[in-house]
């Protein structure tokens, strides 16, 4: 049993992902969240990433990955969620997770899911940066002193 992979424009919740992976028989639970880094870019900083997706094939590949992870590693539940559209710096853009009886397959499955997601799912990102430079002040007009 596993939740459906999701592609959404809404914020992602680690708490909701943890609930998807809960169950008394699930002794090993691994969750990974990827966040947008507000890295420096020249004089400015990344304020957001804009994610675009080719939805139908992306969902199909996510479902294939979900199935492959459960078959290959024997985990019982997985989470495979990606946010698209504008994602601000500091916000979560992706969550993957896996839960099974023991930690080793859960770690291996989660690693497989994030690596394959980045390699095979048609999603692209573009940085949105904002300059940290303050706008230049206009020089004060010189006032000629009256002489004489």
């Amino acid at each position: 049993m596993s939740g459906s992979p999701r592609i959404t424009r809404r914020p992602l919740s680690l708490g909701a992902a943890a609930r998807e992976l809960s169950g008394p028989e699930l002794g090993g639970v691994v969750l990974f969240a990827g966040r947008v880094r507000g890295e420096r870019r020249g004089p400015g900083r990344v304020v957001a990433l804009e994610y675009e997706v080719h939805s139908a094939p992306a969902l199909r590949v996510l479902r294939d990955l979900d199935r492959a992870a459960r078959q290959r590693f024997g985990v019982e539940r997985t989470v495979l969620w990606h946010r698209v559209g504008r994602v601000p710096a500091g916000a979560i853009s992706v969550i993957v997770g896996a839960a099974g009886g023991h930690r080793a397959p859960a770690f291996a499955a989660a690693r497989f899911l994030i690596d394959e997601l980045k390699r095979t799912v048609p999603i692209w990102k573009t940085e949105r940066a904002r300059s940290a430079r303050r706008p230049r002040r206009r020089p004060r007009p010189r006032i000629a002193r009256a002489t004489g």
Binding site: Y51, H54, H82, L117, K118, T120, P122, I123, W124, K125
Partner: peptide
């Protein structure tokens, strides 16, 4: 017919 440049999710 879609053109998919290298992917960059995550």
């Amino acid at each position: 017919f879609a053109v998919h440049p290298p992917y960059g999710g995550g």
